[in-house]
């Protein structure tokens, strides 16, 4: 079967700086790719190239019929923005031509309390807002999810449950998930393959081979302490 995404010799520049150079990998349908690397390694640039927001060279091929649900890195939303959570999801339903019922479904799916629907999005907590963005991404029946640090700004207990929620949704609907995360243990637990961006040549492979102490030290330019939960 055709992979969900094929990337070959991808090259992205910011002005004179080469952010990504000669990047090649493929993502099978229904699998999770974890993307790790230090700040400035080009993780977000990769996502932005994948959605067509950044010019690039090389091959970047999505399978036919790909519908992307995207959660960008922590958004800076004004605290006094008078748009309610329900209004935001309803807007997405109409833009995506989705049934309004999908908004209600997505809302429940990510574990947001019904009372949060009528709250202005600026007054939601960090965790609630990230859950809302995940719900937003799920509307329009995407088959690929691109999540850029979806747990950023969420407290530790919330991270655990949001991680589980994302994993459940991905498995239940057979979605392809590309997940950027600073949390190596999350990547270890959920990813089928890992793409490491950073110092040296990018590496790609299953977590057990990619997430060794040696490789991580090389990637982050120093020893890294992390805790692996066995699946």
């Amino acid at each position: 079967m055709e992979p969900a995404l094929e990337v070959a010799r991808l090259r992205v520049r910011f002005g004179e700086t080469l952010v990504l150079d000669g990047l090649s990998f493929a993502v099978e349908r229904g699998t999770t790719l974890g993307i790790i690397g230090p700040n400035g390694a080009g993780k977000t640039a990769l996502f932005r190239a994948l959605i067509g927001a950044l010019p690039h060279d090389g091959t970047l091929r999505w399978a036919e019929g790909t519908r992307i649900g995207y959660v960008p890195q922590k958004l800076d939303v004004e605290r006094d923005l008078p748009i309610t959570a329900a209004e935001l999801l309803a807007a997405k339903c109409r833009v995506a031509g989705a049934d309004p019922g999908e908004a209600v479904h997505a809302f429940g799916h990510v574990g947001l309390a019904p009372a949060a629907a009528s709250m202005p999005i600026g007054s939601l907590s960090g965790g609630q807002f990230q859950r809302l963005l995940v719900a937003f991404a799920l509307i329009g029946r995407p088959n690929v999810l691109l999540f850029d640090e979806p747990m950023a700004g969420v407290d530790e207990a919330g991270q655990e449950s949001l991680g589980e929620t994302i994993h459940d949704i991905q498995r239940m609907h057979g979605l392809t998930l590309l997940l950027i995360s600073h949390d190596i243990s999350v990547v270890y637990r959920y990813a089928d393959n890992v793409l490491c961006l950073g110092h040296g040549v990018p590496c790609f492979g299953p977590p057990r081979e990619m997430l060794t102490g040696e490789r991580l030290a090389e990637l982050y330019g120093g020893p890294l302490h992390y805790h692996v939960h066995d699946p």
């Binding site: 992307i68 995207y70 960008p72 935001l88």
Partner: peptide, 20 residues
């Protein structure tokens, strides 16, 4: 256009992936 304006206000990148 209010729905498209709202979505692109939250994030132009999300708007792009929503077909706007």
């Amino acid at each position: 256009s209010r729905d498209r304006l709202v979505v692109s206000l939250i994030s132009p990148d999300i708007a792009r992936t929503s077909g706007i």
